[in-house]
Design a protein around this nucleic acid. Structure first.
Lengths: 230, 230
DNA sequence: GACGCCTTGATTGTCGACAATCCAGCACCA
DNA sequence: TGGTGCTGGATTGTCGACAATCAAGGCGTC
């Protein structure tokens, strides 16, 4: 299970299974960024034929985890500073929109469920301070639910199915946990409150700030590492 | 040829060829919206095996022209009012961002080329008044170039590769030419001028207005047809 | 010694056939 | 008569093998 696919189709085929495995392997760096993908090798590794494997590769390309060129094969994407910034730019815009739409369309019970969820996150976060994995899971879950609350199928597809694996990959492999752990919860709470008040404009603004803060945080982090390398 | 793929990979395989043909057929309604896709039938029709056909289907799903469910096959998407509105919401946001980025990153020569292009469009539009196909082509071309000018690869991919076939499908099959033909050129000119002045904020605003006007135009058009049906 | 061509090996793209699954229609039963 | 389970046909998912294409290394030539 990838753990975050919002609404996954059933039943699950071999191609799905292989897709999940490779997604996880790439996101966690088990298959290194930039490395070449060998179809026969992966087919053997997962004990399937090349047909379902290629189906899985097609979907990996869709979520930007690999890049394919005809007759030349596939490579795992190489992470770059520019790529990360481009990703953040998109997320600011799209998740801002998601907030505005969620304020309009998200049903009451989903909002209440999120508030309960946020309280639970706050507790567990106080207990196990710094356990970044759970913190990351909670953060992604929060963003996921808002996106789903927008009820815009194209927006949901782009963010949850196509972009978020890349987001996770950058987080894991570039070690993004930073000093924003505690502030994020307050920001989440404010965003959710705006949605509960059906104030789409404010929710939009707060989400853009929330992601924008992450982006600027990342930018200075990248500048520092760049200076270290000089 | 789809005619608008921004940067198409070479060489072209059978799967690419089939993809182009089916894309065109679906966009132009030759394969009706909502109809079921038969893999053996299409394979015969295009004289290829099912392997490249399925590859093409996977990519058709990626640009939202078909929907697949495991073990049940694929259907051409059904157009709906809600879907069209969702699409416009996304475009407002994404193309607004594209404008802001284009104002920052688009090189001078590309801007000059667009200005020349716009003048040419204005002339041909005056000559052959109402030839909606060329007008549509010109409009799409304008939007394409701005998107490419943003230099954000994810944004480019989403808009040019995944969303614009749907936009074209809605335009063709719902007959969107409306009374906005002449105003669109002035709006295009203003947007381009803002980009040339490196005023990203203004370009963003103008583009949102430009697409928002289309959306509202479509909304009242849809309300009218809905009333007629009552 | 450097450049270009050809051969060779491996990889990808495509094919036809088989296995697993689903859907429509019918018989059967309460 | 309405609902339920089964069966046959068709469709999809998967497989192994072949053909087309590309990349690397050796050879010959300038």
């Amino acid at each position: 299970m990838n753990g975050y696919a919002p609404t996954w189709r059933l039943p699950i085929t071999s191609s799905d299974r292989v897709l999940f495995e490779i997604q996880r392997a790439i996101v966690e760096g088990e298959i290194p960024a930039g490395s070449k993908i060998s179809e026969p090798e992966l087919a053997r590794r997962f004990s399937v034929s090349r047909a379902p494997l290629r189906e899985a590769l097609a979907r990996l390309e869709r979520c930007h985890l690999i890049e394919r060129t005809p007759n030349a094969g596939a490579r795992v994407v190489t992470l770059s500073h520019e790529g990360l910034i481009s990703l953040y730019q998109l997320r600011e815009e799209l998740e801002g929109l998601a907030c505005r739409l969620a304020a309009e369309h998200m049903p009451h019970d989903e909002i209440e469920e999120m508030q309960a969820l946020l309280n639970r996150h706050l507790e567990t976060q106080r207990v196990r301070e710094g356990e970044s994995y759970y913190q990351e899971a909670g953060d992604l879950d929060f963003h996921y639910r808002i996106i789903l609350g927008s009820k815009n199928p194209y927006l949901i597809n782009i963010l949850c199915d196509e972009l978020y694996f890349l987001v996770r990959m950058y987080r894991v492999q570039m070690g993004m946990n930073g000093p924003r752990v505690s502030r994020a919860f307050d920001e989440h709470k404010a965003i959710l409150q705006a949605i509960a008040n059906r104030d789409g404009e404010l929710a939009d603004l707060l989400m853009r700030r929330h992601i924008g803060a992450s982006r600027r945080n990342v930018e200075i982090q990248l500048q520092n590492t760049r200076k270290e390398h000089d």
